[in-house]
């Protein structure tokens, strides 16, 4: 342990020397590892975003209950009160047709001018009910039976689709993580094996001088970590630029998609990619060392 602490500077210097000896191979390794990790970070981002969308939609789970436009205001209020008293309904209030129009104008933003083509307000008033997602089926069943109710719009279909997308991305994420892991392990271990082969005489000399295997192996492990961290850094830069671009493209035309804050997504990706890089570097290094025994 004491020997390792005293030699940290030496190990780093040796790792740099190993890197320089196979400079071109190592640079290519960094690029290929970077691109592989970039693909991984994009899949993770997709999964993250879909999860966030599901979470927001689940949190804001609500149904819009449309009633016969012929009923009087007092009856509509009574209907809202009755719905509010139902088990699983957290809140129920009437949204007037004017408010419905205003909401759509906010959602459409600059595009709201299309609404000016209508002579009258095309929206109807409705009862907006926030409900516990677990009771959505029974609530809808009971409310449909109520007098004056014409139509209920819920977001179950949207949620189901998002669940499916999220599930697919999760499975895809696991497959990509495994594929990336194995590919990176092979690439790194190959480079380490190459380094060990190129330095076999030095390794023999160190053994003849009595150097422990750990002392001999550490610079090679560091080289592996250096390569994957380099690849990870490249992946982080590429994914940050891509996410920035994608978010700018999505926020304008698709304002109703509840995207997570881009900064938290970027920070998360930096942490995940860095940890994964270090892990893959160490694992690849160990794999390379174990599979190339210099006699």
């Amino acid at each position: 342990m004491k020997s390792i602490l005293f030699n940290i500077g030496y190990f780093i210097k040796e790792a740099k020397t190993l890197f320089k000896i196979n400079l071109l191979s190592n640079v290519f390794t960094i690029f290929s590892t970077g691109l592989i990790l970039f693909i991984l970070s994009m899949v993770i981002s997709g999964w993250w975003i879909s999860n966030e969308v599901v979470r927001v939609i689940e949190k804001e789970s609500e149904i819009n209950i449309y009633y016969d436009e012929g009923i009087v205001k007092d009856d509509a209020l009574k209907l809202a009160e009755e719905i509010k008293g139902h088990e699983g309904v957290l809140e129920a209030r009437i949204v007037k047709k004017e408010e419905a129009l205003k909401r759509m104008e906010e959602i459409l933003g600059k595009e709201a001018q299309v609404l000016e083509f209508f002579e009258d307000n095309p929206f109807s008033g409705f009862i907006e009910a926030k409900i516990d997602l677990n009771t959505i089926d029974s609530v809808i069943e009971d409310v449909e039976e109520m007098y004056g109710i014409t139509y209920i719009r819920d977001n179950r279909e949207v949620l189901d689709r998002l669940y499916s997308i999220s599930k697919i991305l999760r499975i895809l994420g696991v497959i990509v993580v495994v594929a990336v892991g194995i590919t990176t392990l092979f690439i790194i271990s190959h480079i380490i094996r190459l380094g060990i082969y190129n330095n076999r005489e030095e390794i023999r000399t160190l053994r003849l001088l009595g150097a422990p295997e750990g002392f001999i192996a550490t610079p090679f492990l560091l080289e592996g970590v250096l390569l994957t961290i380099g690849g990870g850094a490249l992946a982080i830069i590429l994914s940050n630029l891509t996410l920035e671009h994608l978010f700018t493209m999505m926020v304008g035309p698709l304002p109703f998609i509840p995207l997570p804050p881009v900064e938290s997504l970027k920070t998360g990706l930096v942490i995940i990619t860095t940890l994964l890089s270090i892990f893959l570097g160490i694992a690849g290094g160990i794999f390379g060392l174990v599979s190339s025994k210099v006699k």
């Binding site: 020997s3 001088l209 009595g210 150097a211 002392f215």
Partner: peptide
């Protein structure tokens, strides 16, 4: 290098 693993400072 020949002394780095001899537990010397």
């Amino acid at each position: 290098l020949g002394m780095r693993f001899l537990n010397l400072t």
